[in-house]
Design a binder for these strands. Structure first.
Lengths: 234, 234
DNA sequence: CGGGCTTTGTGAAAACGTGCACGAGCGCCG
DNA sequence: CGGCGCTCGTGCACGTTTTCACAAAGCCCG
């Protein structure tokens, strides 16, 4: 069975949509829906059907022509492709406001990403318990990572400490990073890195607001074409 | 001077990078740097210089050949283009864990997005004060939005209430949404919408982790090409 | 068991974003 | 004041993503 393991690489844009499909499929499954067409799935995801079909085709040919996709089976395939058949414990670096909120937020463990450790440098934080996890000192990071086999690190430090946190995480053996700090961090080749930045998102919205405001008076209503990006329209 | 207001539309990918440049420029300015080249800026942003120059060229020709860009002037231009010369108050719908964390997080007001209102439906929440703002009932949303001239809404409700929150926000006159709920919401044409979803980000990382794990044994070390997306490499 | 209806899977085209390479313009130095 | 070196601005080629359009394939009904 070592054969069909790693199929062709899936384009990043598609990978980013798979979790969305997965959520929709799970919801539908819970409501007792057994079969779903690319058209319906597209409707729920706010995309067009062709894109959905192409995305799913990267997983294999799991649909039935004339019918659609069997929900339960497709869920299994998507989860498998995303590597969600196992848990991925994460370590959170930074036990401030954000770190605590993240640890307290249930949505982590629920979805297969239990908080396997929390790290801070402040002596006042170390030892306290947040979201059921005891905060440890940065010096213990490597030990935490290795003992729990953690490969995903979450950076929830202030911007100034983010690069240091990233370096420590990589040195400890973590290979994927999710960065919440408002700073660009650089990581060695081969390490995956995603970034979530509130301020950036708001500033992007601001751009379109501002643009809306200035075109409104010169043109008639040249409303921004509702920037695409997981947006749906009614 | 009503002339050069709305230049050509800037590609979304570029718009998304402008806030990053802005942050870097501001940091450099604070450190006393007066002039910066596209090369240096690219280094800080983890991008290549050509992309930086192309992005900046959408704002106009503000560089000096042979020299670079004047930091202070460029900051002004980027802020102007992003509409950051004014404050954009936001209203947060959902005063649960996440909503409270967002309101408490200083980074909002600091950057020109003061929390102008918080909304919830639970009587237990209404009336309480979070991050200096009193929580009001959903029924009062329109009034809050109109009285403070709010055009940006933040959705921090559970997934099940997200669409309802979005509808209420749009009905109240909000034209931009930032959605933290793990649900696809649909909005009328002309409304801007961005989404931040923890679980999705983690699942994307999971995909690359899983892939790394399975290629490791079959190939030598066909490390994932460090998926591009605001990632830098050392 | 065959024809019609439906929906998938996928080539090919179009649109979009990125990176390269180089001409154009500016400052500086001799 | 002319030449040199540096860096911007951008045309062009390339790679990726989206969209279109249609043949292939399954199901159902008569």
């Amino acid at each position: 069975m070592a054969g069909k393991r790693s199929r062709r690489r899936i384009p990043e844009a598609s990978v980013a949509r798979l979790p969305v499909y997965l959520r929709i499929l799970s919801e539908q499954f819970d409501e007792g829906v057994n079969s779903i067409s690319s058209e319906e799935l597209a409707e729920f995801a706010g995309l067009n059907a062709a894109k959905v079909r192409k995305d799913l085709s990267y997983l294999g040919s799991y649909g039935t022509r004339g019918v659609g996709y069997e929900v339960e089976f497709l869920i299994y395939q998507v989860r498998r492709e995303l590597g969600l058949t196992q848990d991925w414990p994460v370590v959170i670096v930074g036990a401030g406001n954000l770190g605590q909120a993240l640890a307290g937020y249930g949505g982590f463990g629920d979805r297969g990403f239990p908080v396997g450790g929390m790290i801070d440098v402040a002596e006042s934080k170390v030892g306290s318990v947040v979201g059921g996890v005891r905060v440890r000192h940065l010096d213990e990071l490597a030990q935490v990572v290795q003992s729990r086999n953690i490969s995903i690190g979450v950076i929830a430090t202030p911007g100034t400490a983010a690069q240091e946190a990233a370096d420590a995480l990589v040195a400890a053996g973590v290979t994927s990073l999710l960065n919440f700090a408002p700073t660009v961090i650089s990581v060695p080749h081969g390490i995956s890195m995603r970034k979530v930045d509130l301020a950036v998102e708001l500033q992007i919205l601001s751009y379109y607001e501002q643009r809306r405001a200035s075109t409104e008076q010169s043109n008639g209503l040249q409303a921004v074409p509702a920037e695409r990006r997981r947006g749906a329209s009614a």
